[in-house]
Simulated scan of single mutants.
Amino acid sequence: MKPSPFLLLLAFFCQTAFAQDSLDVGQRRNTLKLDLTHNLLYRNAYNLSWERITKPNQSMGFTVGYQEFPQVFNLGENIQARRESEAGGYKVGAEYRFYLRKENRHAAPRGVYIGPYFTTLGFNTTRDITYTATTEPQDASYVAKFRLYSLGAQLGYQFVFNDRWSLDLVLVGPSITRYNAGMRLEGDFEFDPDDVQNEILDALIEKFPGLSDLLNDKEFDSSGKVDVLGIGYRYQFLVGYRFGKYKKK
């Protein structure tokens, strides 16, 4: 059996990291990172993070980005999805890291770290639909908004190569997350909007891992909104470039 490219890549990173244990690493206080995780989860995702060393073995970080809601092809048995007229979204976050002095042989931002984080995600999507459960198919459009607010703690490891490049892996990141969704139907139709809203909601929340279980049996209220508090999680894969004044240790 041939080893997978991912395992070969991981082995290379680990070998390179441990091979540098005996080297002095220059101290650059800033790292600009590209978050590749959301590129796998969402459409047109462009998220950048900035990490800055604040104290020996401590750092703070900020994240901003743009992303779109995942493409949904099946909205329900009686709902035909047509074109998406609008799509957009954002990510904003902040974190503080403590690089474990006893676990790491090098200064931050290299090695094992823990710390709190906060993130908020937002998505907007507008789409045309056709409802077919009536005698005559009826056209409408829905406007949906999703907001997620997460406060949690994370454990991760950051590799540094040649004092310039970094590979940042968030391995564990549980959080308390507030999930807020709102939807309204627009158009000249005669069907009951409550039934259609909840059918569309079931299809959309399946795009968020674990959210379908959290919102089980939840329905929109009379104003077309749902709001629930639950457990979330975070994992990330970021590639970074380090910059700033060089100081040899």
Rank of each mutant, 00 (worst) to 15 (best):
L171S: 01
F13H: 05
L40C: 05
Y241F: 12
V92S: 10
G122M: 09
S4G: 03
N39Q: 12
G182C: 04
E77K: 15
Y131F: 07
F69T: 13
Y96R: 15
Y66G: 06
V228I: 12
K248N: 00
S175L: 03
G244N: 11
K2G: 08
S166P: 00
S150N: 05
A181M: 13
K249A: 00
F243N: 00
V170R: 13
G89R: 02
T134C: 08
I231M: 11
I129P: 00
Y235A: 15
R52Q: 09
D194P: 00
S22G: 15
Q197P: 02
L229T: 08
E86S: 11
R52H: 08
V72W: 07
F6I: 10
N39A: 05
S175H: 01
D21Q: 14
I79S: 07
V172I: 11
L100W: 11
V160I: 09
V239N: 02
E84H: 10
Y46W: 14
R147S: 07
S141F: 01
G173L: 12
Y179Q: 09
G115D: 11
I129C: 02
E186A: 04
K248S: 00
T54R: 09
K91N: 09
G187I: 01
L9V: 06
Y233V: 11
F146P: 00
R28G: 02
P109Y: 09
A133Q: 14
R184I: 03
T130L: 10
Y241R: 10
Q67P: 15
E68S: 05
E84Y: 13
R28K: 09
F161D: 05
G240N: 03
A45F: 01
L185Q: 14
E199K: 15
F220A: 06
L204G: 01
L9P: 07
D21G: 05
L204P: 02
A108F: 02
Y66S: 09
A81H: 11
K218W: 12
M60Y: 00
L211G: 10
D213T: 10
S212P: 15
L148V: 14
T135L: 13
F12N: 09
D213P: 02
S22L: 07
R83M: 13
D24I: 02
N180G: 09
Y131G: 02
F220N: 04
Y42E: 10
L100G: 08
Q80C: 10
I205V: 06
V112K: 08
I200A: 07
L32E: 14
D192R: 04
Q58K: 07
S85D: 13
V172L: 08
S223K: 02
G230D: 11
D202P: 01
L100V: 06
